[in-house]
Each structure stands twice: as C-alpha cells, then as structure tokens.
C-alpha cells in the first residue's frame, strides 16, 4: 500500500492544461495541415499528383480528406508550392471544406444552439471500427489516458449505442462491417451525431476504390465532423471535438 502511494507521488499530476493552457508539444518532424499554393505551380508539372499515393492532389486542389500525410508531394515539388505546416487544427464540418485552397481553410464551427444545449456539456459516443488498420482507434483511445483526460470535457465512450449521443467512426467501412455499423447507428436514439475520424472514414484512405470497402462512412451516415489524418494526432481529434461542442474556437 505504501509503495502504491509512493509511486503515485512520484508519477505526479500529468493531465495537460490544454485548452486553458498551451497545447502539448508536437514533434519537430510532425506533418500538419498541408498547404498548396497553386500560383507557384509550373504549367504542366505533374510533380505532386504523380507521386501522391491516394489521389489527394490534382487540378490545383488538395483534398485533406484523401491525404494520408506521407509528405511525398512536398518532397517532389520543385517550386515548394506544397508544404506541410505544423498546424494541427484540421477538423471541418463539411466534406467540401476539406478541399483546401490557399489560406481560406474553414475549421469546424460549433453545433447550432439547440444541439449545443443537448451535447455541449455531456457527449457520449459509441465508437465503431469499420475496416481500418486500428491506428485511429489507438490514437482515439489515447484521449482517455490521464494526460488528455477526455472525461473532463464531459465526453465519454460508452459500450451501448442506446446510451450514446452519436457514433465516432473509423475505417473505410468494409463491406463485412457495413451491416453492423448501420445497426449500431439505428440503435442510437435521435438526435445523434456522426464523427468521421481519419482518412479511411472520410474517403477510404489507402484502401480507396477497393471492392471490399466503401471509401468512407459518408455514403451511409450524415457526418457532422470530419477529422483528417492517417491517423489524426490525438490533439487534432480533441481540437475537432471541442470545436464541435463550442468549447473552443
């Protein structure tokens, strides 16, 4: 018992001050929101679109929903027209907002007043993993650790869809998981939210176009929040959820 208490003392208080205090430090080599300045592109240069593994770049547009943040485009561009910033804030409310052009990127806005009243201080989510690689799930789970302590915002993952206010979906929606995802959705009482986390859930990720999967959950569910990344950094996910609830922004 004494040892448990002594260890508790040594481990200390570890919950971050964010969002009241500074955001946790991001690694120096972190690839945040990419920026494309199409005005720098040379006419007919296929540089970035020919190396992008998921077709996120093309025609002077960059689709953050399809991007898996590999950095191949930035390395291939002779004009530095595309670069990865250290910006972790990326969540958006509408699919079309993820197709970034220039600096006018539109971050997620808060829910309208009625929904905020319902979910703003208490949001229970049922997570459904639908055919991804489990990295998104792992970095969503991190939000429950003492460092991030998602519970302090009233946000919690629950076991039963009947207890949930919405779904947090990961994965491209494999055909084998589609029925279970839809049944879970039906079991959540209305009004309800959908949060799509990661490039798979938004646009199929590296599995885009596979006949075994469905290029994301947007085809089946009305998505309220898109959180890009492969997988999104926990800070990106937390920022998105807090923006949706009107807790920051």
């Amino acid at each position: 018992m004494l040892k448990v208490l002594w260890t508790r003392f040594k481990q200390g208080h570890r919950t971050m001050e964010y969002p009241a205090g500074p955001a946790p430090e991001l690694p120096r080599r972190f690839l945040g929101r990419p920026k494309l300045d199409a005005s720098l592109c040379m006419v007919g240069c296929p540089g970035c679109s020919s190396v992008c593994p998921t077709g996120a770049l093309g025609g002077g547009k960059l689709d953050l929903g399809k991007c898996i943040f590999c950095g191949a485009c930035a390395a291939a561009c002779p004009e530095q027209a595309v670069e990865f910033t250290r910006e972790y804030r990326m969540a958006a409310r509408r699919r079309e907002d993820l197709v970034a052009q220039g600096d006018g990127y539109r971050l997620a806005e808060a829910l309208e007043a009625k929904s905020r009243q319902l979910f703003g201080r208490s949001l229970k989510l049922r997570q459904v993993s639908a055919g991804g690689c489990n990295a998104c799930e792992a970095d969503v789970n991190v939000l429950n650790t003492i460092g991030w302590d998602l519970g302090r915002f009233g946000v919690q993952f629950v076991a039963s869809p009947r207890h949930a206010d919405g779904l947090l979906v990961t994965g491209p929606v494999s055909e084998n998981m589609r029925p279970a995802l839809l049944k879970t959705w039906e079991a959540v009482p209305s009004p309800k939210l959908v949060i799509a986390v990661g490039s798979c859930a938004i646009a199929g990720g590296p599995y885009r176009g596979h006949p075994e999967a469905h290029d994301g959950c947007g085809k089946f569910l009305p998505v309220d929040l898109f959180i890009p990344g492969c997988p999104p950094h926990p800070l990106t996910t937390l920022d998105g959820i807090l923006r949706l609830l009107g807790r920051i922004g």
């Binding site: 593994p53 993993s129 994965g171 494999s174 998981m177 599995y207 596979h210 006949p211 075994e212």
Partner: peptide
C-alpha cells in the same frame, strides 16, 4: 473477417507508389 479491406490483394500487382 470484419476488418477485411483487401489490403493483401491490393499488394499484388505492385510495387507502386501505394
């Protein structure tokens, strides 16, 4: 089988940028 997304099948035909 619920997570089956055709990733092994898609590796055939490579190597490519994906």
């Amino acid at each position: 089988g619920y997570q089956h997304r055709g990733v092994e099948r898609a590796l055939s035909g490579g190597p490519n940028r994906l």
